[in-house]
Design a protein around this nucleic acid. Structure first.
Lengths: 273, 273
DNA sequence: TCTATATAACTTGTATATAAGATAAACAAG
DNA sequence: CTTGTTTATCTTATATACAAGTTATATAGA
């Protein structure tokens, strides 16, 4: 009589042809690995400008800080470099990504094009509860201004635009917009706009919501255009905070000037002020 | 007298406060590392559907195939998972990303919004040499249809749209579009549209170019809308190639139906056929 | 004092080893 | 035949070790 172990017949190697996940279930990033946690943490610290553009960061130090090895830290950093939130100099060092100046005008144009789309859809499909949520967000913004709480205002502003995309049935478009506007947000934070300027966005939101409620697509689109145009003006008249925070990649220089003029003529044209 | 080595005083640790790169020079991915090469290679093979959605890939096998260790392979795979081109099941396996059905309608809407923007800019800013390039690309497309060369036609089609973005001064927007339309392209390749249907795009391009030359913004925008609307129709009437190629994430299901109806009413409205 | 140069110490890139979890084949019981 | 359980072997996740390149600094010489 042999042991159960030795009596076992030799096993065929397993195939693992299994489909990735069960039906209807999304497989992507589960978000529980060290690398994912570090990725989110670093991204947040960079976007909030707690980590200022251009400062060196080292995989080793981060690993020690997070209490892990270099491997997951490195994985997070590589993924951040795809978003241009960090710059990796091959055998030299890694740095918090500088703001790519040439990408800013295009980001604004993209945002405007996409938000025009979401607003138009929202005018068609928004339900009463969508309007209520938007009203509540405006209320939240009002309080944030009262408390001079920049962070809260910024968050509520984002939530307002996101809710419009949701109401229109295009939540994925908002995701894309957040991706595109990352560097714009960093710029604005560094610029530290004064509070009462920031407060005026609330009136713009109110106007926008009024048009949406009235199912006035063109009016809503124009209100959105004005709203985003102000953002543009903020950015243009706030010159050079610190030059070392920015990078001006050469191959996009042509685009920069062309887009700049495009922006100018296009938006000053329908500027109602 | 001591040796030059031992006579050296103890050295202060270096600071490395250097700014990332020289002025005006972009630091990002140099593209020479193994990980970068593998990233590009894998992405190309997935987009070309040489690697079909859902099949398992293993870091070990890929490492062996590329003649490197698992580390750079893994780095490439993680970055691809951000684009949803691969799906990683945490301790189980890695698979070529299935096409996220729920993202397709939104991708089409985004593309339309962005290309409307680039076309409008191109009508304003395009120079004669831009028009010449566009004409040449149409010629290339004509030849590709003659040779029944799907790949060549697809490439020339992309180049045509990219050139419009270039002419408008927004090359970055085309980059964003390529990012967004990845899964659309995969779907179309799998669908294997018939060649004479593909040939009709050329007439649409000709019409578009004619409007651009005439500096007729609204006409050009409408021509682009028609052009992209046909793409949409291709996608909608080609039902279910193989169900295992697709994934339908649950949390986006609401958006899917809403967007679907939005698309339908919006585009059939100004459909000129 | 200034400039050129060598070099140690710092960086990231890659390879390998180990840990930990998931899965399908084999087996047992009904 | 069906169902539940075990377990070898597969997978990815992380840690560690090493290789290759870069840069600030100390030193030597003008």
């Amino acid at each position: 009589m042999e042991t159960s172990r030795s009596s076992r017949a030799p096993r065929k190697p397993r195939a693992h042809n299994t489909p990735p996940t069960g039906p209807g279930m999304y497989a992507g990033r589960t978000g529980t690995s060290s690398a994912d946690v570090i990725l989110r943490g670093l991204r947040a610290r960079i976007i909030s400008t707690e980590l200022v553009p251009g400062i060196p960061i080292s995989e080793h130090d981060l690993a020690q800080a997070y209490g892990v090895s270099r491997t997951p830290v490195r994985e997070a950093i590589l993924r951040l470099s795809d978003e241009r939130l960090v710059e990796v100099a091959p055998k030299s060092g890694t740095f918090v990504g500088r703001i790519p100046l040439s990408a800013l005008p295009e980001a604004l144009v993209v945002r405007q094009a996409l938000e025009e789309t979401t607003v138009r859809a929202a005018v068609r499909f928004a339900q009463e509860d969508d309007f209520v949520k938007l009203e509540n967000l405006i209320e939240t913004q009002q309080q944030a201004v009262g408390n001079a709480d920049r962070q809260a205002l910024h968050d509520a502003d984002d939530a307002f635009h996101e809710q419009i995309a949701q109401a229109g049935g295009y939540p994925g478009i908002w995701e894309l917009i957040t991706q595109v506007k990352v560097h714009i947000d960093r710029y604005r934070r560094l610029a530290q706009l004064d509070m009462d300027r920031l407060g005026t966005v609330i009136e713009e939101h109110r106007l926008l919501l009024r048009h949406m409620r009235a199912r006035d697509a063109e009016g809503a689109v124009q209100a959105m255009a004005i709203h985003l145009h102000k953002l543009r003006k903020d950015m243009s008249h706030l010159k050079s905070i610190k030059p070392e925070y920015f990078i001006h990649d050469a191959d996009l220089a042509v685009e920069f000037t062309k887009a700049q003029s495009a922006v100018k003529s296009e938006l000053l044209a329908d500027d109602p002020t």
